[in-house]
Simulated assay, not measured.
Amino acid sequence: MMVPFLSLQEANTPYIDELKAAASRVIESGWYILGEELQSFEHEFAEYCGSRFCVGVGNGLDALILTLRAYMQIGRIAEGDEIIVPANTFIATILAITQNRLRPVLVEPDPLTFNIDPERVSRAIGPRTRAIVAVHLYGQLAAMPELSAIAQARGLLLIEDAAQAHGATRDGKRAGAFGDAAAFSFFPTKNLGALGDGGAIVTSDEMLAERLRAVRNYGSKVKYYHDCEGVNSRLDEIQAAILRVKLKYLENEITSRREIAAAYLEGIKNARIRLPVVACDPGTHVWHVFVVQCEHREELQSYLASRNIQTLIHYPVAPHLQKAYLGLHGLSLPISERLHREVLSLPLGPTLRPEQVKQVIAACCEFKR
């Protein structure tokens, strides 16, 4: 039996009639940009996250870029300032910093949870540090109470990169409600995925939200009047309507993901494969991906492929070793480099059937080098 990593067609099939109706509603309305669907989704998603405001944008990278840019325009950050960021994140987090002519300060993660280490964050703060970007990698919240305390004590902004953590919780709060602002991606593979690109920023800062609405729309609050330099990055009406449908079912899908992850954690018993660690209550992780570590990753991936199990690597090359960032190549980040060499993501999604889960578990247990 073939076990796909994630079948988007199967994932969307249960909602197909509602998705078609939502798209038809927009088509028939004749209003396709900055309309009622976006306003409704922004209200619903802000409420879901526990924040006052949501600003829909074109994609997750823009959500990060525009958050930093808006903070620069309202005087909280200046060109050349330093932003602390995890060393083992997806490159988009770094791109958002450098594209605003800010300096990324890469900090090693906790090797068990994959998330940024608060103690190392404290040691990395310097006179030009203005913000900490906490990435909730793979669906598990970063150590937000500790990072919040550091940010408040040092007068720093705390920004959540929540692209992989829709619905992740701690102490009754969801991702997006911990920092000064949070950036989300709605790429189709995300736990809350659109049928195309999409992103959003949530915040309870009214000034920031107001500026973001202008920045995403050419710097304009009133058509043809431009108060600041902006871009064209707006979550369109059809994607907003699609997301409104899927948001209703997000908690059910998270429950399915947690059940599969629990089965993996219980069933995979192989000393060659290190399982992910949940820092808090298992009910807090939303399992965007289930990432194991193996010193012989290529052999494991090849073996699983021979058993008809598709896997992916998130991510094979650390940002500081990418060609795009030659200036960072001299950094010594051994934890991040090891993780990028060893991580492997197993199939996980709401459409994975029990027999497929058992097939993955059996193959992992049987793997020998």
Rank of each mutant, 00 (worst) to 15 (best):
D117F: 02
R272S: 10
A163R: 13
T189G: 04
G283T: 13
T255V: 10
F90S: 15
H226D: 04
A21F: 09
S29M: 14
E108N: 00
N308D: 11
Y325N: 04
G35T: 15
R353H: 03
Q140A: 15
V231H: 13
D236P: 12
I268P: 01
E47P: 03
L328A: 07
A162T: 03
K173M: 15
N100E: 06
L141K: 02
A262P: 02
L64S: 11
I313Y: 00
A240C: 09
A46H: 05
T89I: 12
E259G: 05
L339N: 13
G50Q: 01
R128C: 10
A240S: 11
E295Q: 05
Y224W: 07
I238P: 04
C54L: 09
P350D: 01
Y32A: 15
L300Q: 15
L6G: 00
P276K: 12
A318H: 03
R216P: 07
A240V: 09
D180C: 02
V215F: 11
I125W: 07
Y225D: 06
V3C: 02
A134H: 04
L19H: 05
Y325P: 00
C54M: 08
P111T: 11
Q310E: 07
L212S: 08
F41A: 01
A21W: 12
F114G: 00
V277R: 14
F367S: 11
I201R: 14
Y264G: 01
Y32L: 15
A124E: 05
L147Q: 03
C49A: 12
H340V: 10
V289E: 12
E108L: 00
P316T: 11
